[in-house]
């Protein structure tokens, strides 16, 4: 059987280069196991081999993470590993962030499994969303325990075995929701759960409700007549024919379209791409969702200074919050560049 090839990522301290004084060293790769890699190799046994160890100064990574990630990926690729193991970082913050960053970069570029480990308060967990991060103690005194758990899960990942629940395998929930077929149908699970809840016995919710970020409303805009106002919609109003082919549900993109020379929208010029509501009324008169007609009138009357010549549209139907956040940030950046001072958001 071919041996599993492992590349190990550690920081300058564990690579025995030096402590804080050497935190600026750029990445370097060495053949074979190094530092905690010796123990890692023992735990991996005969079926896997630490073929190389890549290390980097924590400050170098923190200050140039994009460059460092690229350099590290290039070095790692040469060894054609089956998996990358990073750390464990325990409670070392910069090291944890580097472990998560390197794991993301290697997984994205080389499409191999990656795994790391850290203490529950390590900031590396926050940026490691989607990664397998084994929960460790807060110091390297528990190196063997940490590596034992990492190795157990790492071998499962490489061998494509079924991965158990976070509490079974010892990793932090990755923030990933995964479908599976349960033993009982949903209705029976619900009544089971209700009976436990009523009896005051422990039960486990299948979906912990996250806390929602509430955005406080901005203060009112003063002096509208001197301001440039933009309109942005999640109601799917697009130029006729939907040139960017924005999806009717689960939108993966937004569109930027010109309003230059348009006094209002018409059934001939615009339509909705939204699949979550009856499009009849929006298609008859797209101004119902994107009120260009009224804004032009206000512009003529001098109530607002100017209507921004571009508008942004996406479809807010089954669209993931992650995508919506991304669209929002990008649209806001473009509006700021265009010196827009206020935005009207319309939904459906």
């Amino acid at each position: 059987m071919k041996k599993i090839r492992v590349v190990h990522y550690i920081n300058q301290f564990f690579a025995q280069i030096g402590a804080e004084d050497k935190a600026h060293v750029p990445p370097e790769i060495k053949k074979g196991a190094l530092g905690p890699g010796i123990l890692l190799q023992q735990l991996l046994g005969n079926n896997a081999e630490v073929v190389a160890t890549v290390f980097c100064g924590d400050n170098y990574y923190a200050e140039k993470s994009e460059v460092a990630s690229r350099e590290i990926v290039t070095m790692v690729a040469k060894y054609q590993p089956d998996i990358l193991i990073a750390g464990p970082a325990f409670n070392a913050g910069r090291y944890g962030i580097a472990c998560s960053g390197v794991c993301h970069a290697v997984a994205n570029k080389l499409s191999i499994p990656v795994i790391t480990g850290m203490f529950k308060e390590n900031p590396g967990i926050e940026i490691g969303r989607g990664l397998y991060i084994i929960e460790t103690a807060n110091s390297a005194a528990k190196m063997k325990d940490a590596l034992t758990m990492i190795v157990r899960l790492a071998l499962k990942l490489v061998n494509n075995e079924e991965i158990g629940a976070p509490e079974e395998e010892g990793y932090f929930p990755r923030g990933i929701r995964e479908n599976y077929f349960a033993e009982k149908i949903g209705a029976v699970r619900a009544v089971d759960m209700l009976l436990l809840k009523l009896a005051g016995e422990p039960y486990k919710t299948e979906y912990p409700i996250p806390s929602f970020d509430r955005v406080p409303p901005s203060p009112p805009v003063i002096g509208l007549k001197n301001q440039k106002i933009a309109i942005v919609t999640s109601g799917g109003i697009v130029p006729k024919g939907n040139p960017d082919r924005i999806e009717s549900s689960s939108a993966s993109k937004f569109g930027e379209y010109s309003l230059a020379g348009l006094d209002k929208l018409t059934a001939a010029s615009h339509e909705t791409a939204h699949g979550g509501y009856d499009p009849v009324y929006a298609n008859q008169d797209p101004n119902r969702v994107l009120p260009v007609d009224v804004l032009r009138q206000l512009e003529r009357e001098g109530v607002i200074g100017k209507l921004h010549e571009l508008y942004y549209a996406t479809v807010g139907n089954g669209t993931s919050v992650a995508n919506a956040k991304k669209f929002g940030a990008e649209i806001a950046t473009r509006l700021k560049k265009a010196a827009v001072s206020a935005v009207i958001l319309t939904s459906t």
Binding site: G130, R177, T205, E206, I209, S320, V321, A322
Partner: peptide
């Protein structure tokens, strides 16, 4: 509706009282 990668927030609303949810 957690996105195709399962990484997004699943619901559009929530309340702390919703402690028992079947998905």
């Amino acid at each position: 509706y957690a996105g195709s990668d399962g990484l997004s927030q699943s619901l559009a609303d929530g309340t702390p009282e919703a402690t028992a949810v079947v998905s």
